[in-house]
């Protein structure tokens, strides 16, 4: 049985169930890299070209940890998910980037998912991929159908139960997909945490931000906890036609959660992210318009989360203290 490696980074958090189920139905075994840890990050940084972003560095580290453990590594080129909607160039070029910096990598399976090119192109790409494992077209068709149902169920599970990708993957696949964030407490403070799922779910990169916020008594809502149709529609309401693949996750969720009147919005982005530099500013404007407290956080290779905790504490204090004024005895000066 051939083994297919899936790096636990980038689009993993959104598409793992469809990928895994597809390969398993074709008779392959799926190997997943462990959650991000220091060794993985250090390895990734050591091989990345200088100008890539932190999530790509982490991705390379995950890929390196799979070398020698599988026959193939699955790195799709996720180009476009809809009409005139494109992904970040680093994600589009991911199989080529990986090939260039990690020549020792086993065969990379790199279907080009480009819905802009139409349905037949998509089927052709999937067919080409599946033919490595089987020549039985009925089996292929079944694998596609089952996998897609799995994906829809996964997406629905997150929005129905209001859980993060991490928690949903834990429920579906067990202990190797651990999550330290819990189900939301019934706090009276609701915070929307906006960012790419590969940042909000990677607990090494984000210093367990969700866990810490929950410990400070906040309900944390992320984009995956809203139904996909709702954030898609919200993104259209906000900016019209979308052009970035992640607009629903950041702008859409920003619009949706400000309409829900959450108590505060925190954005979490990786230093140097191109698309974020525009989308986060949009959310900031939206937060100002709706008078929603707003805290932008940006992550890099820091190993200590202390500075982040100070900001989170101060942000929640600011919201909690709204309306509390200290009784001021006669102003002492000025």
């Amino acid at each position: 049985m051939s083994k297919v490696g899936i790096p636990r980074a980038l689009l993993y958090y959104q598409y793992y169930p469809v990928w895994r189920s597809f390969f398993e139905h074709l008779g392959a075994e799926v190997v997943t890299s462990p959650p991000t840890n220091r060794t993985i990050l250090t390895a990734g940084i050591s091989r990345a070209v200088a100008d890539t972003c932190l999530p790509v560095k982490v991705f390379l580290g995950h890929t390196m940890s799979l070398i020698g453990k599988c026959d193939y590594i699955f790195i799709p080129s996720m180009t476009s998910f809809g009409k005139k909607t494109y992904n970040c160039s680093k994600i589009i070029g991911l199989p080529n980037i990986t090939r260039a910096v990690l020549p020792e990598c086993p065969i990379i399976l790199d279907p080009n998912i480009d819905l802009e090119k139409g349905r037949w192109y998509f089927y052709h790409q999937i067919y080409k991929l599946a033919s490595r494992f089987t020549s039985n077209s009925v089996k292929m068709k079944k694998a596609i159908d089952v996998a897609w149902q799995k994906q829809l169920a996964y997406r629905k599970k997150m929005s129905d139960e209001k859980i993060t990708s991490n928690q949903a993957l834990f429920d579906l696949y067990g202990s190797s997909h651990s999550a330290s964030s819990q189900k939301n407490p019934q706090g009276n403070l609701t915070i929307a945490l906006l960012g790419h799922p590969y940042i909000t779910n990677d607990e090494y990169l984000n210093h367990r931000i969700i866990y810490h916020l929950q410990n400070m008594g906040a309900n944390v809502l992320t984009s995956e906890m809203a139904p996909q149709t709702a954030i898609d529609a919200a993104a259209t309401r906000a900016v019209g036609e979308t052009h970035w693949a992640f607009e629903p996750d950041i702008i859409g969720a920003g619009q949706y959660y400000t309409e829900m009147k959450v108590d505060g919005i925190i954005t979490l982005s990786a230093f140097g992210c191109g698309p974020d530099s525009m989308m986060i500013v949009w959310v900031e404007h939206r937060a100002k318009e709706t008078k929603t407290p707003f805290l932008p956080l940006s992550l890099d290779e820091h190993s200590s989360g202390g500075a982040m905790l100070t900001r989170l504490e101060a942000f929640l204090d600011m919201i909690k203290r709204k309306g509390t004024k200290l009784p001021t005895p006669t102003p002492a000066y000025c």
């Binding site: 504490e313 204090d317 600011m318 200290l326 001021t328």
Partner: peptide, 12 residues
């Protein structure tokens, strides 16, 4: 942050 704000609001 909270500490600084509270003190400043007291004096000014």
């Amino acid at each position: 942050i909270t500490a600084h704000a509270v003190a400043a609001m007291h004096y000014v």
